[in-house]
Design a protein around this nucleic acid. Structure first.
Lengths: 113, 113
DNA sequence: CATGTATATACACTGACATGTATATATTGC
DNA sequence: GCAATATATACATGTCAGTGTATATACATG
């Protein structure tokens, strides 16, 4: 779906990845993040806007600060998407098992040399 | 970790995302992918190299063709990484309890675009 | 060996994006 | 209102990644 690749693109940037990881500790003001990341404050604000537009973070005003925190829904989306691939291998294992059954009946060599 | 952001960056490209989705059906030759994606064959080969270097796909020669398929380990990595965020929310719920969740729902901040 | 097919690579180009500097906006305290 | 702090935005710049064209390599077939 469209939402998932938006989330991926947002998190694929190294700085935004670090920001998300840092937010595991809880709400973060912009200044807190600036201290942990080696870029200017303006850049952090831009990254936070991108993360916000992707639905990964939410903002809550607190005085003159803005407290950002992770949105669970975004990671639920990611988990559901990855889950789709897990089903893929489960299906392949089923087919592989069936193929083994057939091969046991008539042991054929591979077509590749 | 370093592996996970590499996987994210590889899958964040729209074309590579589509390639990965198409491979859910099983092994794909390069030509198969060229038919489904709106770019030149050379571009597909480059994307496949990036996916391969990220550990997302593996290659198996078959005559003059190269059959690419998904590697389960990469998606296990992704799942484990997302799982780390799920633990984050579980911890938060433990600390604050369901009462604060209700308060947060009543005073929900608005998101700008 | 010659031809066709399948895939990879070298090269140049272009557009997008992340960054820094500077400035605007908002909030608090005096 | 004024100064200080915190955050957002406008602008110019440089870099990087994806793309197409052209070519190289590998394999198959006759």
């Amino acid at each position: 779906m469209e939402t998932q690749i938006t989330i991926l693109q947002a998190l694929a940037d190294p700085v935004r990845f670090r920001i998300a990881e840092a937010m595991k500790a809880g709400e973060c003001a912009v200044g807190d993040i600036v201290e942990r990341v080696d870029i200017q404050q303006s850049g952090v604000s831009r990254h936070l806007r991108i993360l916000s537009q992707a639905g990964i973070v939410q903002m809550r005003p607190d005085g003159q600060r803005r407290l950002y925190s992770l949105r669970k829904e975004a990671f639920d989306q990611l988990e559901a998407w990855v889950e789709g691939y897990r089903r893929h291998w489960e299906a392949r294992l089923d087919r592989f098992g069936a193929a083994l059954e057939q091969n046991r009946a008539s042991a054929r060599p591979r077509e590749k040399s």
